[in-house]
Computed example of a mutant assay.
Amino acid sequence: MTEHIGVALFGAGRIGKIHAGNLARHPHTQLRYVVDVHRPAAEALAAEHGAIVVGIDEALADPGVAAVVIGSSTDTHADLILRAAAAGKAIFCEKPVDLDVTRARACAEAVRQAGVTCMIGFQRRFDPTFAALKQRLDAGEIGTPEVLIVTSRDPGPPAAAYIAHSGGVFKDMLIHDFDIFRWILGGEAVSVHATGGCPNMPEVAAAGDISHAAVTLRTRDGALCQINTSRRAAYGYDQRFEVLGSKGLLQAGNVRPTEVVAWSGDAISSDKPEAFFLERYCAAYSLEIEHFFDALVNGTPVRTTIEDGIKALELAEVATRSWREGKAMECAI
Rank of each mutant, 00 (worst) to 15 (best):
M1A: 15
H4E: 14
V7N: 02
A8E: 02
A8M: 07
L9E: 04
G11K: 02
A12K: 03
G13V: 04
R14Q: 15
K17D: 11
T29V: 09
Q30I: 11
L31M: 10
D36Y: 00
R39K: 05
P40E: 00
P40W: 01
P40Q: 03
A42T: 01
E43F: 02
E43M: 04
A46D: 00
H49D: 00
I56L: 13
A59M: 06
P63F: 15
G64A: 14
V65F: 07
A66L: 15
A67E: 02
V69P: 02
G71N: 11
S72V: 07
S73D: 13
T74Q: 06
D75F: 14
D75W: 10
H77W: 07
D79T: 15
L80I: 13
L80Q: 06
I81D: 03
R83Y: 09
G88A: 11
A90K: 06
E94C: 12
D100P: 08
V101N: 05
C107I: 12
M119S: 07
G121K: 05
F122H: 13
F122G: 03
R124Q: 15
R125T: 00
R125V: 01
D127V: 01
K134D: 06
K134N: 07
Q135D: 14
G140M: 04
E141L: 13
L148Q: 07
L148F: 07
I149A: 15
S152P: 01
R153N: 12
P158G: 05
A160W: 03
I163E: 00
A164V: 02
F170V: 06
F178I: 02
S191T: 15
S191K: 08
A194D: 06
T195I: 05
N200I: 02
P202D: 00
P202C: 00
E203N: 12
E203L: 11
A206D: 15
D209C: 08
A214K: 14
A214Q: 15
V215A: 08
T219F: 09
A223H: 08
Q226G: 12
R231L: 14
R231T: 07
R231I: 05
R232W: 07
R232Y: 03
R232S: 11
Q239H: 10
Q239W: 09
V243E: 01
G248Q: 05
G248V: 03
V260A: 13
S264Q: 10
A267G: 14
I268H: 07
S270F: 13
D271I: 03
A275M: 08
C282V: 04
C282N: 07
A283C: 07
S286T: 00
S286K: 05
E288F: 08
E290P: 00
H291S: 06
A295F: 11
A295G: 08
V297R: 06
V297E: 10
G299K: 09
T300H: 10
V302T: 10
V302A: 05
T304R: 11
I310L: 11
K311S: 14
A312I: 09
E314I: 14
A316I: 09
V318F: 09
T320K: 09
S322P: 11
G326A: 10
G326F: 12
K327R: 12
A328C: 11
A328G: 09
E330H: 15
E330L: 13
